[in-house]
Design a protein around this nucleic acid. Structure first.
Lengths: 230, 230
DNA sequence: GCCACGACATGACAATAGTCAAGTTCATGC
DNA sequence: GCATGAACTTGACTATTGTCATGTCGTGGC
């Protein structure tokens, strides 16, 4: 059974936050709450979806194995984020696999429950679409980055997304392994290392999983500049 | 007003094909039917979505402009395909722009109509989710290609998707400009040219917009082989 | 028919990223 | 404490791709 703290996190997720209290209670009380160890599989590509997943703690990566065995990281989720909405409601196989990349707490909402509630109140469909749209948007943004930016620029954007303040300097912690960051940004770990050292010229220092950005505006200029201008 | 032939195409779209006849009739009779010339804009990034779009004839590209002015093609749609579902139902701005890349016929379903119908019958929400999921899936597949395959391999997959038969040889027409194919595959036109000439060694001949594939199985092997093995 | 322009092909070169190998650091188990 | 192994960094080299320049080929306008 779930702690109140976990329920509070679930309530804040994009999927649930705009639903009527009463429905949220129903969903939370029928949900399955599970802990995953680092490296543990949550579901596999081609498996049939039976639930929608909400991350309560830790980090989960979605990835795809190509026929050759190399893996492509599609997205990385953390506290308060949900995934699998569009798949769960249609009884189709997952297009990706999901794996815990740190110890995780994940809530699973059985899809039949969500479906039956949706037939009662169409507003739930809108909530699901909202969450799905945000995934769609994230994928589009990622595609644009891959097609229009160099590796170092993608790293710069990644760091900027970790910053809270939008000017001056700031210090951030890298949220997960550099290997995973590299995968998420579509490059090899070696290239990520080199991208980091290239960013030294625009005021970025990396030490372990700690990053110091001395000039956020300058870094943003770098990220958005034309690759051919450098 | 629409020809019956156009309505028939719309009925076959993923968005509408599984809906009850009665709802489809309502939607079709309130839809807006428009013709677009090559190069004409259908909507712009950041514009607020007011409709869902169904392509009846021609080709439409969705693309994103990066801050530097370079464009990244996100997807290309043709007869029977719909786009903008998840955006239209949420009153959020489009994350992409849409442009006709050939003379086009496009049907627009006003989103308030779709929303009100959805509140009557939640099944419509499922249909919209189905269409949205297929876009999500396509983006994930594209991401995987970009991250795990070389340019020539992406071109090989593109050609394979145009083939109907799955063994032996086949001949296909390239559906649109090579410039657009290049954009869709995340490369420059020059790189596409070179990818084509590289594919000569696996039995692919390109002449104008006509492609001859002498060995579909061999080409598939090539597309799925490890990039480092060549 | 001729011209102009855009799409496309190709060569030379530069920039970028992947590969392979060697070495460092750090967390873990014993 | 020490050994082990995984994550990470760095260097040298290669492969791939982008850039720029040039040339060809067709299509559409006149």
């Amino acid at each position: 059974m779930a702690h109140e703290a976990q329920k509070a996190i679930a309530r804040q997720s994009l999927l649930l936050k705009s639903l009527p209290e009463q429905h949220v209670d129903t969903l939370l009380s029928h949900a399955i709450w599970r802990r995953y160890d680092r490296g543990e599989t949550i579901f596999l590509q081609e498996e049939e979806a039976k639930a929608v997943h909400v991350v309560l703690a830790g980090w989960v990566k979605l990835f795809r194995m190509s026929p050759t065995g190399s893996e492509a990281v599609v997205s990385v989720f953390t506290r308060g984020e949900s995934f699998g909405e569009a798949v769960a409601l249609r009884n189709v196989p997952y297009p990706v696999s999901a794996e815990a990349v740190s110890p995780c707490e994940v809530m699973h909402i059985p899809s039949p429950l969500l479906l039956s509630l949706m037939r009662e109140d169409p507003e739930i469909g809108v909530s699901i679409l909202a969450a799905t749209f945000s995934h769609l948007h994230a994928l589009v943004a990622q595609l644009e980055q891959l097609k229009a930016q160099t590796g170092a620029q993608r790293v710069a954007e990644f760091l900027l997304n970790l910053c809270v303040n939008d000017k001056g300097g700031c210090e951030v912690e890298l949220p997960y392994d550099k290997m995973l960051i590299a995968g998420r940004l579509g490059m090899k770990p070696e290239s990520l290392s080199r991208a980091f050292s290239r960013l030294k010229t625009v005021g970025v220092r990396i030490n372990r999983n700690h990053a110091v950005i001395s000039d956020v505006v300058g870094l943003r200029d770098y990220a958005e500049s034309d690759p051919s201008e450098k």
